[in-house]
Design a protein around this nucleic acid. Structure first.
Lengths: 350, 350
DNA sequence: CTGAAAGCGCTTACAG
DNA sequence: CTGAAAGCGCTTACAG
């Protein structure tokens, strides 16, 4: 009975007599009627589900994804959408490798930190739009949600300088990744603007895991044994900062007593260490939410994406100041703390 | 054309001439044909998707869920199933509150640490079976995956005793939860078997978050100021152990120098602290995998669940020994370390 | 061996 | 205002 339109409170509801409506509602209630999702989506071409694709290295998940996920799921739930997650083994060269997922099981897809090749390719199908978060670079037809990592790195290093640090190491992310490069750039710019020299041996290639951070720091300590230690280490993310702290602890160096250490992302991990980590806060939860909002806008109002259009939305970052960073031992502050606040919004977190 | 059966390599494939098969395959390839998932699942009554329901307090996710999730997703992917997650606000009184999800959007559901009321209820629909992990108690028709938490707590406290600790505090989980009670039970049993007295003030009600752990420890330190400190604290999970360490640090107590601290679960958090946390390892990843395997078995071979059948599978736990636990300061070991190994499998993790 | 038919459970025009 | 009809894109018996 087509009168079941009543159940969907469609615009036609008004056209039904109150009596028929009652009758239908009553029957539905009695039968404990539940519309079948598969049938409905076959007819409506909407399955009320968004996908999330990510590669989870080592079978594990990490804090970064976790926080974006929670933003995505919260937003999806708010819009009555289910979230299905696809754990990829690796990113292929081309976004088109994911078009197989556009077979009606999802209405749209958000890509978490994809690293496709740089060659342009055709945009995703209009009926299943894509949105990315922290894409390594822009792809046609895929709006990218990112944050101003360069400014974050700049603000953090600026803060270290203002506290009096001069020998500032940067433990980088994976070579070649856009995010890692932006951090390096911000680091160098902060040094330059403070008229401090950039010295190559303070730039140490690390990675985004605690293992890589630990290894990099260990290696450096071995290699530069006897040479001056860094007063502060700015790490590419929170995980590598934890690894760095471990490596320092192994040789008896305490944080922040001997060396200050800062991270990036301000994930749960930053608050799970003792001392808690100073970090550059990216609004990961909000970025996840934003991704879903944009995606749903595209789902509800499909646009024919031109190959030429590259679009991104950039979130600001803030500093989360905590105990892992202090003035260098025995030094006078070269500037009042407040002076570190001018480069970006600065928030002391608890 | 019904010949599309070829595409599914159904048992009937053999009945088709090689030529027709070629022709069909060629056409499909040329058209870049993708079967529509919604249509297929409408016809097959299988949507190749399993659901995961969990309540994520405070909009956040935690390490515990994270590890189980990764096990679930890995197993689901292995079976070519998608995973859709449902973030609940809270567990209702009755599992039946989730039967709304059985509308064709998932083939089965795994519940993460559900806390339903104790009244029995009708089992889930046979076409959409449920499986739980760490359910607060068994429900009819829902097989529960759990672990031997009592033995884990016992083994850990036993280990502390063997190292020479006598004033052993237990920072508990949330009052009333089965898992928390099992830990308490294991703690008490270890004391009893070592003929050590159980003293009420060493049992401190905490919770499963670092905030609750920190608060509980802070409060205790204030309340029992001047009284003997614990030599070791056994915390209900890793998060509360981190909170405990923070509270100790606030009053200048170092781990493990002044106080040994141990956690439970052995999540990523346990390896993200300096010093790394001794913890009771639950095989969360494997438990997630097991949940999916059981669920798929039920999906593929539906059974009419009797209200009377309560079923569970119990995983063993092990100890992960790390730096946060040491012998009490200035004490001789009362027993060789190896003696702590007899109560459960003991593994030194790196 | 092959293809026409019916049906999965919904929605959406479209006649009455 | 209401209900019969066609169609969403697949699968599964079932005739030829």
């Amino acid at each position: 009975m087509s009168a079941s339109a009543v159940l969907n409170r469609s615009r036609t509801t008004a056209h039904f007599s109150a009596e028929t409506r009652e009758r239908i509602l009553a029957a539905a209630a009695e039968l404990r009627y539940r519309p079948n999702l598969a049938a409905r989506s076959l007819a409506k071409r909407r399955i009320q589900t968004i996908g999330v694709a990510a590669v989870m290295e080592g079978g594990g998940l990490n804090h970064y994804f976790l926080e974006i996920f929670s933003g995505i799921m919260a937003a999806a739930a708010r819009h009555d959408q289910s979230t299905t997650v696809f754990a990829l083994h690796a990113w292929k060269e081309d976004p088109a490798s994911l078009y197989d997922l556009c077979d009606g099981r999802i209405d749209g897809l958000v890509l978490l930190a994809p690293t496709f090749g740089r060659r342009g390719t055709r945009p995703p199908p209009a009926h299943t739009p894509f949105v990315s978060v922290h894409a390594n670079h822009l792809s046609p037809g895929i709006v990218n949600i990112e944050s101003d990592e360069e400014a974050g790195a700049f603000a953090l290093v600026n803060h270290l300088i203002a506290l009096g640090h001069r020998r500032i190491m940067h433990l980088t992310g994976p070579a070649g990744l856009t995010g890692a490069e932006r951090r390096i750039h911000g680091y160098k710019r902060a040094l330059a603007e403070a008229r401090l020299p950039f010295e190559r041996h303070w730039l140490v290639t690390g990675g985004y895991t605690s293992e890589l951070g630990r290894e990099a720091m260990r290696t450096w300590l071995r290699q530069f044994q006897g040479r001056p230690l860094p007063q502060a280490v700015f790490c590419a993310n929170d995980a590598s900062a934890l690894g760095c702290i471990e490596a320092l602890a192994e040789v008896g160096l305490r944080v922040p007593g001997d060396v200050s250490v800062a991270g990036f992302d301000d994930t749960l991990a930053a608050r799970s260490v003792v001392p808690q980590l100073t970090s550059v806060r990216q609004p990961l939860h909000e970025m996840g939410t934003c991704a879903v909002d944009r995606l749903l806008a595209l789902i509800n109002h499909p646009v024919v994406a031109s190959d030429a259009v590259l679009e991104s939305v950039v979130f600001p970052v803030t500093l989360a100041l905590r105990a892992s960073v202090d003035a260098p031992p025995g030094s006078d502050r070269l500037a009042p703390a407040s002076q570190s606040d001018d480069a970006a919004d600065c928030v002391a977190h608890t």
